[in-house]
């Protein structure tokens, strides 16, 4: 059903980039918001979401890192991706809502940053074996 080489990972976590850049397409961006916007653009341009854009149960103003996996629709795929569009738009809305409540802290201590990276990367790690089948 999936071919790992076709999946696209959108991320601002350099660990994810380094780990998966040779296996699949990885788009490495600067901020959480840019990741959501790039993902939104890809979903609007005939991609399905493979992972939930709010994985980890961390509120979007808590973690500075975000990785999302998308997958291009097959040319003959008539399946619409309306649910994916609604989901990513909803996630963006929730993201802005949380930024309004309290902007994400600009800087955490190094070990906290590292923990956020670990948790973000683990979301992708848990999905890779699901696609390698």
């Amino acid at each position: 059903m999936w071919n790992i080489g076709k999946a696209v990972i959108v991320t601002n976590n350099d660990w994810v980039f380094e780990k998966y850049k040779t296996i699949t397409h990885v788009i490495c961006l600067g901020t959480y918001e840019e990741v959501l916007i790039k993902t939104r653009d890809l979903v609007h341009n005939r991609h399905h979401l493979l992972t939930h854009p709010q994985a980890s149960s961390l509120k979007p103003n808590q973690t500075p890192y975000r990785s999302v996996m998308v997958y291009p629709n097959a040319a003959d795929d008539t399946d619409d991706n309306m649910n994916d569009i609604i989901l990513i738009e909803k996630c963006l809305e929730v993201f802005y809502q949380w930024q309004e409540i309290a902007p994400a802290p600009g800087k955490y201590t190094d070990n906290v940053m590292r923990d956020f990276k670990v948790i973000d990367a683990s979301m992708i790690d848990s999905v890779i074996p699901r696609i390698f089948i």
Partner: peptide
């Protein structure tokens, strides 16, 4: 059950 990945 919570099952979102490492530490989750």
């Amino acid at each position: 059950l919570q099952s979102q990945g490492l530490l989750h």
